[in-house]
Design a binder for these strands. Structure first.
Lengths: 237, 237
DNA sequence: AAAATAGTGTCTATGAGACAGTATATA
DNA sequence: TATATACTGTCTCATAGACACTATTTT
């Protein structure tokens, strides 16, 4: 273990997911914000929001800060995705990127409208991105879709109360297939707390509002969720 | 995104698992090799094998190289575990560690006997380690145990051919509980290829030898296993 | 009453696990 | 023949999915 005089740059990038209507089908779909690069390499290309890690901040903090700076959005869920460190992934100097993925609620994206340098894209219809960012997004999508099936992260897309139909819509948007309302109810209802409120105004029987069961964590990430040490997931209510 | 003049050290560490008999029960158990630190911080403490990432090697290559250097062992399975980057995890300077975990076969550990600076420990009975390495091992153990239940990585602990009893013993050692031989057979046999050979010499009916089904990958890591981009898992036959 | 969604009941297929029973080697 | 493990058969229970049915609101 010799001394370190590394010229390796350490960066953090974030794949931010939000749900919005698909412009054609009208159904909910996954969107992610990208930033336009203003310098080489890949000047003019779209890329994931990111930046260098500061010496005084943890990786998760760097991800949160950068996310806030570039898209004015606070996540309701944030988790480390993977650390990308191939030698040639940046054409000039060596860069290692710790990538996080985040889920945000619709109201959290309101302050972040499309500008010249930030634009929201359909996650499944991205242009060619800078660096290896297409692969990174594909991996993040795979992780999100896998995790929605065995955890309760879908709730991070919704507000503090929601109907079962709304929660089902989130699952359907992420998994890109219709789910049976009856079976879906039986699967998720035990993990929710019913409120006394219902939603009136529709032209049909008013559905009940539910809220999170705080005693059940959204995901099980093993020892990393508890304990004093590095956190890999944080929920910001 | 300002210029980078980071003083952050980028290191790679590896949690290496092998199966050996438990000194008391005699059953197979998980062991990991640790190295004794020869300098501050934590001089004299045991720590995970690791070192600085060189500018010309990928993270996985750095893990493989370091593993070979410190324990003279080549892994049959190697996967990125997590990137640890809390600010205060090293008492002097800032260090970000990309941690890998590896599985090795018994014959692969023969060249790596215990010395003054390398010693194998029972994974569930470790002393207090340097840095945050106890947390890291706990997380690696959790990941291994989780993954054994839904993938076929257990085979990476065994040679090219093996009996169902041997494979079951691996699962039992990792999961720390007995498994029903009949049910275990039905679960894993469809993923194996039977050979014509059997093992004679025991005082009972000779069991058949099986080998890997190469057409089924040991794990499903989504887009990262395929494609041209960063690999997060490699199987070295 | 018609329409639309909320919510319940129930049947079937599948897989995990418990455990009895049969097969084939060695001592 | 005794014994030990290999291997097979089968029963039960829990869960996922398909889908029929009832409930309750608005128009």
């Amino acid at each position: 273990m010799s001394d370190t005089t590394q010229g390796i740059g350490l960066a953090v990038s974030t794949v931010i997911f939000a749900l919005r209507a698909h412009p054609e089908t009208g159904l909910s779909a996954l969107w992610i914000p990208l930033v336009r690069r203003t310098r080489d390499p890949f000047e003019g290309s779209w890329a994931l929001p990111g930046g260098w890690v500061r010496e005084s901040e943890s990786l998760a903090d760097a991800a949160g800060r950068n996310l806030l700076e570039t898209t004015a959005v606070e996540p309701s869920y944030l988790e480390q995705l993977y650390c990308f460190g191939e030698v040639d992934r940046s054409p000039d100097r060596r860069v290692v990127s710790v990538v996080y993925w985040a889920l945000v609620r619709p109201e959290q994206t309101e302050r972040s409208e499309d500008g010249d340098n930030v634009r929201w894209f359909l996650a499944d219809e991205l242009p060619e991105l800078a660096f290896d960012h297409n692969v990174i997004v594909d991996y993040a999508l795979w992780r999100l879709r896998t995790k929605v099936e065995y955890s309760r992260i879908a709730q991070a897309f919704l507000g503090s109360t929601f109907t079962l139909a709304e929660l089902r819509e989130v699952h359907e948007a992420v998994l890109q297939r219709a789910l049976d309302p009856a079976n879906f109810r039986r699967q998720v209802e035990p993990t929710l707390v019913p409120t006394d409120a219902v939603v009136t105004g529709g032209r049909h029987r008013p559905p009940r509002l539910y809220r999170y069961d705080e005693s059940i964590s959204l995901v099980d990430n093993g020892p990393l969720t508890h304990g004093p040490a590095p956190q890999n997931a944080r929920s910001i209510a």
